[in-house]
């Protein structure tokens, strides 16, 4: 482990910069032309991570720490939140960022551990398929949600949130 690139050594600490050309070839999974995609992905992991701290912590705070916490969560609670476009937008952003961040992280892990080309292809295909389905499903759920459901006779279902009283009739 002595062949180091002295140019890449950080002056003050003497830590070699990561990825300074010392990667064992058995870990190299793709041709170098993919470089700029990997760079964008690297930045995205950090930017989305920072945003997700706020998005997720507020999500957990509003759903678990205030009001009746875990006991308050039911259909009417979700209806009440999504009646507000701010929470619709909040959940939409959280859904997309968390899924893309998580999917990219899983891609890294598959690249690390699956050594056979065909195994990686399979695992990543399954990953991308699952992620696409979840992102589309979650997006549709937010935008097609109907809080004030009625039965055939037009009366409000008992699970409907209280604000529906003023909407229906």
């Amino acid at each position: 482990m002595t062949a180091t690139n002295s140019e890449a050594t950080l002056p003050a600490q003497g830590i070699e910069a990561p990825r300074s050309g010392r990667i064992d070839p058995k870990y190299l999974r793709s041709n170098p032309s993919k470089g700029s995609f990997e760079m964008v992905a690297w930045v995205f992991m950090r930017v989305s991570g920072a945003a997700l701290v706020v998005l997720i912590f507020v999500h957990l705070w509003t759903n678990l720490m205030v009001g009746d916490g875990i006991h308050q969560i039911d259909f009417a609670f979700v209806a009440g939140k999504w009646a507000n476009p701010v929470w619709q937008f909040w959940d939409l952003t959280m859904l997309w960022l968390a899924m893309l961040h998580g999917t990219n992280g899983m891609r890294t892990i598959i690249n690390d551990y699956a050594e056979k080309d065909s195994t990686r292809l399979w695992l990543k295909s399954i990953l991308y398929l699952a992620s696409t389905v979840i992102i589309i499903l979650g997006t549709l759920v937010i935008f097609t949600f109907e809080p004030c459901l009625v039965d055939e006779s037009g009366t409000l279902l008992e699970y409907a949130p209280s604000f529906c009283q003023n909407v229906v009739n």
Partner: peptide, 10 residues
């Protein structure tokens, strides 16, 4: 998936 059940029924 569990949240998507709001589209199935309350």
């Amino acid at each position: 998936l569990d949240t998507s059940l709001v589209r199935v029924s309350p």
